[in-house]
């Protein structure tokens, strides 16, 4: 070896070399006193780092974290966040279809009110999760008053409301079905 492979020696000390590289390093170390000194130094460094004392948290930490956990299970949290994401997309999409629909915009005063309502509801919905449900009811009532068929976007908002309702009822069922008992008892059972 023409040049000392310092990087390879460091990886060798860390146990991160292949079998072949390991043999290469061993062969080099056998004939190179300065690299043997380097290897010793690197090993001493690793030992010094590893000898840093362990630190630990008080026992009360566990109960503090457990008391701060959300009341619903991670699975419900995930479903709710997915439902939130999809219904947001659908609500925004349905709002956009109203805004760009010239038939609705061009129609009478009711049409203009509908267009305005649809344009803002996507953003409003982000702040108020129940918006799709209210939205469907409001637009359906307006449609009934106008004696026209619902617009496709209303089907989308209705779908949003149904998904939201499903998640809500499912969540209630899940919470009812959860194991009763104290956290300590549950810990005992899970060991």
């Amino acid at each position: 070896m023409s040049e000392c492979p310092k990087d390879l020696i460091a990886r060798f000390v860390d146990g991160e070399t292949s079998l072949l590289e390991g043999e290469e390093v061993k062969a080099h170390l056998a004939g190179c006193p300065s690299c043997r000194a380097l290897e010793k130094e690197l090993s001493a460094f690793a030992m010094a780092m590893e000898s840093l004392p362990e630190i630990s948290l008080p026992d009360s930490f566990t109960s503090r974290v457990l008391s701060a956990l959300p009341s619903v299970s991670p699975r419900v949290i995930r479903i709710r966040s997915l439902a939130f994401l999809w219904t947001t997309c659908l609500a925004v999409l349905s709002g956009l279809t109203w805004v760009i629909n010239p038939y609705v915009i061009g129609d009478s005063v009711t049409g203009a009110i509908l267009a305005f309502w649809s344009g803002v509801r996507g953003m409003v919905w982000l702040l108020l999760k129940a918006m799709p449900l209210i939205d469907s009811v409001v637009t359906a009532l307006i449609k009934v008053a106008r004696h026209t068929l619902p617009h496709p976007s209303e089907f989308l908002t209705l779908l949003c409301a149904m998904v939201g309702l499903f998640v809500w009822t499912w969540q209630i069922e899940t919470r009812r079905g959860r194991t009763k008992g104290t956290v300590a008892a549950q810990m005992e059972g899970s060991r």
Partner: peptide
């Protein structure tokens, strides 16, 4: 798996196992 279904005891076991490692 258990914790994901809402078993806080299972999560407490994970917490006990890794809290000091994460803290350090």
């Amino acid at each position: 798996r258990k914790a994901e279904q809402g078993n806080q005891g299972a999560f407490a076991s994970l917490l006990e196992r890794y809290k000091n490692a994460v803290y350090s």
